[in-house]
Design a binder for these strands. Structure first.
Lengths: 213, 213
DNA sequence: ACCTGAACACCGTTCAAGT
DNA sequence: ACCTGAACACCGTTCAAGT
């Protein structure tokens, strides 16, 4: 009610929310985390990340209360990129080719480091905006647009939910991660895409007589 | 050369290799492990398993030097069952239906507890008989026979490796595990099976002119 | 021969003291 | 306001002592 409002507090406040050394430590941590996660996977030692960044473990926890907060920051740039790529591909002439390319890109970045696929899939499927992937909802939305466009163009069947397509791409990334064979992901995605192109199985079979009641 | 051979040593030796209390403790551990793994997943506390079995933690380690050894023992029965089921289904009239049913069963037992899909996939794909799943090779072999039969009957395309089909089924189980939605696994498997039924994508497209050299 | 549980090692997390 | 690292908690693993 009586709280005062300074004239230019609306946008300027977010620009320098922290001390210069704090900002620097934060950047060092994210850079170190990217290296260590890539080397050792998403369950790498946080102590090691702090050591490589040259800061105390307490500083890491101050900036990133949970492991997921740190992972989320590492993913931030590439998340923005994949969303931008989806918008770009919406303008491409072939809806099917656009979808295929985007799913390929999604797989590539989901496999950035070991353990990430597992961590992310829950977020794509769920509705809650988690700490691990604040952009996951936006990624799903962006991918959905590409799927719907391909469906409306009649290039893929329309009885499959867009979210399921994205989850299937994640499964492909997971296969690559597990088997250590990147081409396995490509083969799996190709199989799923062929399934998407196909006439649904229940339509190719003889029509079952409708059940009474 | 000079080693004596007792008259009936050939099969009897394996029957009582350990003391009665040791045997009992072993059984208690496997039973407790099954319960705890089901409740808490494949990374459940080993100390808790020992406690529930009513034995010291040292006894658990004596019988099962690694976590994988314990998991393997828990899976033993169902592994034998899925292999038997494959042989049974090889005699079923419809190769495609037989394959579908077997993959469904495989997914069901791969999702027995959280974290198992991940642990097993490496074994299906790899060649080494690991501690975690000594039967994985046999399961792959059994599944391969079902895939090959469906291919030879012309019910599914023959340019897909049988091992890839099994890995795809594992991916379906993984999706169910991650999203907590069992029907997601069914939908995903259905999509893959439609892909398997489909004419390969490169044959449905206009034939590309063969590249020179 | 087998069992037990204290002891050790490791890592994630917190928090009192310092700047 | 932020940083530091010792301290605490937790869990996996080993091994000397016991039966």
């Amino acid at each position: 009610m009586t709280s005062p409002t300074s004239p230019n507090s609306q946008g300027a406040a977010a620009d320098r929310p922290q001390r210069a050394d704090a900002r620097r430590n934060r950047d060092l941590l994210v850079a170190a985390a990217e290296v260590v996660f890539t080397e050792q996977g998403a369950d790498a030692s946080l102590e090691e990340i702090a050591r490589r960044a040259g800061v105390g473990i307490g500083t890491l926890y101050r900036h990133f209360p949970t492991r997921d907060d740190l992972i989320a920051q590492v993913l931030d740039d590439s998340n923005a990129a994949i969303i931008a790529r989806a918008k770009e591909l919406l303008g491409a002439p072939s809806p099917m080719l656009a979808l295929t390319r985007w799913l390929d890109a999604l797989i590539g970045q989901t496999a950035r480091f070991r353990g990430l696929t597992q961590a992310l899939t829950v977020n794509y499927a769920g509705t809650t905006g988690s700490r691990l992937c604040s952009a996951c909802g936006a990624i799903t939305t962006a991918g959905t647009a590409l799927v719907v466009r391909a469906q409306q163009a009649g290039e893929i069947r329309d009885d499959v939910a867009p979210a399921d397509v994205i989850v299937s791409a994640n499964a492909a990334a997971w296969i690559a991660e597990q088997t250590g064979d990147a081409s396995a992901a490509t083969r799996h995605l190709a199989l799923v895409l062929d399934g998407l192109r196909a006439t649904p199985a229940h339509r190719t079979r003889r029509v079952k007589p409708a059940r009474t009641r």
